[in-house]
Design a protein around this nucleic acid. Structure first.
Lengths: 227, 227
DNA sequence: CGTGGCATTGATGTAATTCAAAAGACGTGG
DNA sequence: CCACGTCTTTTGAATTACATCAATGCCACG
């Protein structure tokens, strides 16, 4: 399968098929354009999802029109709906096209009996989700907008596959980032400009960020100390 | 076992032994005073914890002295350390005394083979943690301090065992709440006074909150809309 | 070439943080 | 039981930072 490119020639992702050989037969292929719904169940869902190309956001919509982006999913990430009495979680595509595999839980468990790799992935899905959520929580605890944006860049860089020259491709819009960080779109923009003016990053188009000084970025996004 | 009371006669908790009969033999009893460490492993830990009485906070300490409270655990809640490459998570007691059971994972799994209740609890630990983290994330997304405090009161009331007269006992300090909500201590205090002045809550001592108008509180803590 | 969506930039009002101090709660020891 | 000291909570005033409103620039697309 060839690399997929967005309209401006940026190579966003190549599919990752960590467990493809075994789960392929039971995988339902979903292709979505940006902002289209991938999954909106609100009760315990029998499906598991895996983002293959593109990106997705896990979010809720508040009744005053605001939106909370709880998590971004990039190729390789898995997703499922947990029993959630409080919030209605949705999964939406962020870029066009976004390819997602959908598996039935029971079929996945069936395969996991024989395939240790699949079993391991199922076992690790929840811990990974928790890891992302905890990191996000720490990020949201950061008081200033610049700290949040800096932490976001580092976190996304860590999760993304390495790109040449410490360049980072943000598949989502500023508005997505804003709702993820809990600040206004303009604040995201200002923070990025601020970082650029300080020579910490370069902006090569709205979606490409080159990290010029990782140490400076890390200093802004106050990292965790060992106790 | 009798009810435990704090010094001012508030019944904070009675122990909950959902799985006591079977896990008791392998449970290590830990008793801690407020602010004392319960667990600070930073790599995949072989232990599972369950808060029995008192309360605990799951948090990280930043290298500028600030602290992020990621989660509060109250009696019945389980805790374990996930493989976390980024943040060092600690579990600390919030009140004196806090009683925690510690189990070895392997022993717990052994028991789970025969005891369906234990198996179910182990299966549900991660989903419950995710549920709490997602709710927390939505809460942190709320912009204003009053919204956050209102959402916190509702969330904590939902998780706590019902108290007479819609009264809520907050075992943790204002500073704990502040670090949990990502705002300053003074802002928490001001928000509570604001809610009291508006007749939405009553403050019977710093730790006792009586919810006088739950609808008003729910309106402040913008709830999630169905899509 | 014009239009619409997204990103950036600027000006202003508002809300939270910060610094500072007083009031209240709690524990200790007289 | 009361007095005292300490810590927590609350309140106040000044500053800072973010959200909001508004306008412009930019790029893609019709």
């Amino acid at each position: 399968m060839p690399a997929l490119g967005s309209s401006d020639g940026i190579i966003i992702d190549r599919p990752r098929f960590a467990t493809s050989a075994c789960v392929e037969p039971v995988a339902e292929h979903l292709t979505r354009n940006a902002d289209e719904l991938i999954c909106a169940e609100n009760d315990h869902s029998p499906y598991w999802y895996r983002v293959l190309t593109g990106a997705a956001r896990c979010c809720t919509h508040l009744n005053d029109g605001r939106r909370r982006v709880i998590d971004f999913l990039i190729p390789g990430d898995m997703f499922r709906v947990y029993a959630l009495p409080v919030h209605r979680i949705r999964l939406e595509a962020v870029v066009t096209p976004t390819l997602v595999h959908r598996y039935r839980r029971l079929e996945l468990e069936q395969i996991a009996r024989f395939d240790r790799a699949v079993a391991r992935e199922m076992r690790e899905e929840a811990p990974r989700a928790i890891e992302r959520l905890q990191a996000h929580t720490v990020m949201l605890g950061h008081s200033s907008a610049i700290e949040r944006v800096a932490a976001f860049l580092l976190e996304f860089s860590r999760r993304s596959r390495p790109q040449p020259e410490d360049t980072l491709v943000l598949p989502m819009s500023r508005s997505d980032v804003a709702d993820y960080l809990g600040i206004a779109v303009e604040s995201v923009s200002r923070a990025l400009t601020h970082l650029r003016r300080d020579g910490i990053i370069d902006l090569e188009g709205p979606k490409r960020v080159r990290i010029k000084s990782r140490p400076a970025l890390e200093q802004l996004a106050v990292q965790v100390l060992d106790a």
